[in-house]
Design a protein around this nucleic acid. Structure first.
Lengths: 136, 136
DNA sequence: TGCATACTCTATTAAATCGATAGGGTAAAA
DNA sequence: TTTTACCCTATCGATTTAATAGAGTATGCA
């Protein structure tokens, strides 16, 4: 299941991408428009800023804004930042690989075999979608 | 992330499918072979039996066995029984649909648009894999 | 300079979920 | 009638999730 963090983060990014200009947008405005708890959204936007997707400006007229064009923001990056690994099990993860303690052999593991396909299919979707694509 | 319940359930099904015959296999044997907590596995096998994938036999010589051929057991069914919805958000779920309270319009929702694609790609994988496929 | 604005950061918490465990109950076979 | 092995309920600790509170800090502007 998709976490609310990811859901809200995607909605916030979409809202920013659909602005006419790149002027900073206040947290309060995003929260209100997307029906998100403002405080919770704060922490999400902070995460997105630290990961380089958003910029921020303090003080009057401040807020958050996109650093890159929506066309250049890949869903693979967004998902990994907000949701973490795209793979459903660590043993098929590209960026967060971990061996299973209980599994004697990945090559013959049925779970591994299935989850590898699921990961690839999800990756294909995320790689083929930018922020611009999903707000159209 | 895939729950251990699903992971263990898949492993147990794989183990049963790879048997030479259809004689009942004891929980203890499956648990030992697949490195699973026996008590936890008990509840998982019970779920699989209630959903019609497994049969069971009590008493001496008892255990669990596959009811259908591995070729006829689709991963879509297994995943829905063990893991629940395949969709990452209820608003794109075929079997567990629910409307989002916070979302004013699904048609224009970016999250909806993206997750619809993810669901379809996962469904394709699960529909194209039977239990027989993943133990090969 | 001083004030208002709005982001920054830490800590806390309630609720839900997960994975595992305990223990007695019951059906079936020998 | 005894043993075997599945059946079922209850509970529990740990973790994660979603949300909240509140103090801190940088910026713009008068």
């Amino acid at each position: 299941m998709l976490s609310k963090k990811t859901k809200y983060g995607l909605k916030a990014l979409s809202y920013l991408a659909s602005q006419d200009n790149r002027l900073p947008v206040q947290i309060a405005e995003i929260a209100k428009h997307e029906n998100i708890s403002q405080k919770f959204l704060e922490s999400i936007l902070l995460t997105l800023r630290k990961s380089g997707l958003l910029g921020s400006k303090k003080g009057k007229g401040g807020g958050y804004y996109l650093i890159k064009d929506p066309e250049d923001i890949l869903m693979t990056d967004v998902m990994r930042i907000l949701e973490g690994p795209i793979a459903l099990v660590p043993c098929v993860s590209l960026n967060f690989y971990e061996q299973c303690e209980d599994c004697p052999d990945e090559a013959t593991c049925a779970v591994h075999k299935l989850m590898l396909q699921v990961r690839d299919s999800a990756l294909t979707v995320y790689r083929n979608n930018t922020l611009a694509d999903i707000i159209k």
